[in-house]
Design a protein around this nucleic acid. Sequence first.
DNA 1: GGGTAATCTAGAACACGTTCCAGCGTGGCG
DNA 2: CGCCACGCTGGAACGTGTTCTAGATTACCC
Lengths: 198, 198
Amino acid sequence: MTTSPRPAAPPLTERQEARRRRILHTAAQLASRGGFEAVQMREVAELAGVALGTLYRYFPSKVHLLVATMQDQLQLFQEQTRKHPVEGEDPGARVADTLMRTFRGLQREPQLAEAMVRALTFADRSVSAEVDQVSRITGQLILDAMGLTEPPTREQLAAVRVIEHTWHSALVTWLSGRASIAQVRIDLETACKLLTMD
Amino acid sequence: MTTSPRPAAPPLTERQEARRRRILHTAAQLASRGGFEAVQMREVAELAGVALGTLYRYFPSKVHLLVATMQDQLQLFQEQTRKHPVEGEDPGARVADTLMRTFRGLQREPQLAEAMVRALTFADRSVSAEVDQVSRITGQLILDAMGLTEPPTREQLAAVRVIEHTWHSALVTWLSGRASIAQVRIDLETACKLLTMD
DNA sequence: GGGTAATCTAGAACACGTTCCAGCGTGGCG
DNA sequence: CGCCACGCTGGAACGTGTTCTAGATTACCC
């Protein structure tokens, strides 16, 4: 578990920031159509108006690119959720509802979701820092939904981990057509029961 | 979830069965060295002594090949486990121990595990039947460990699903170096608490 | 044993992720 | 202003998964 030798991102100029956004936007757009395989690096470069080499300078692989896209999308969800938190008494129910809401958000662009999740689970060690970041955002989403007034206990953190595992795996199962949305909801609700044990 | 249009595998001749085994064995061997990327279709074909086209006739893609390899390995574990079941009073603990035992089995060939799990999570819809089969074996492994004397309740089945999600996702997290074995054990034990609720 | 349909082989060919290179622009520094 | 370092461009090139084809081999039926 050593930190990867990433030399602390150099600050980007405005033009560079714009290029980065253009690339991410193009990737999301292509993914929204044909999913993972429709995101072709040559095409992303061309549509974003950068050279292939430049694309690779910004995102060292297709997986990096799509994981960054997921970070982006998740952050949007997180902001939405913070502005309009789920109502309800039971913390477990709030967490389950929040995740289902995120789920429906992904469902709105199923191909995009497919691309991002495929990238996320296919990622090897060279992407682990970025994947970890996604995981941190997801965990925070859950913690937010719990609406804690004091720091979480060890048991609560353990439960959050299992909920996160369930979330990821259920997502994969749904995307590959092996589980219905109803089933995903049941799985999430089952995992969330861990929050209200003893 | 309709059944895929698979026209019921035609029976294989002895030579064909041997070829299939040879291919699977070669794939596992190559995977045991360099993991997912070391399994190169040309090399599998050559080492297994079949033409590339034949390899593709038996396994329509690299992912199919590696998922089949996982089926194979899991079945071996299942047999082992049935011969030597885990001892213990608490069903939850038995399940957690059984999965940890399987985990250590995978750990013995980490590269092979990496290859199989990457294939499993990268699989798209065209492989869903095979992935489902793997999922079924895993579920059965858990049910076996529970040592039920009567058919499982709805709640128990729901818990099994969450445990399975946790298992898969924890495996991925460990393989990408983002979680330790100790953490995996904790996650599995947490999920297994669902078995002994209410 | 002969005929035939399915299967296997060798190898070329194609697609897409990735790498590499030569040259052009650009922004900052003396 | 001249110069330099760096990032960007266009494009070629490479590796590996996958597909395709023509011919050899095999399995099976009569």
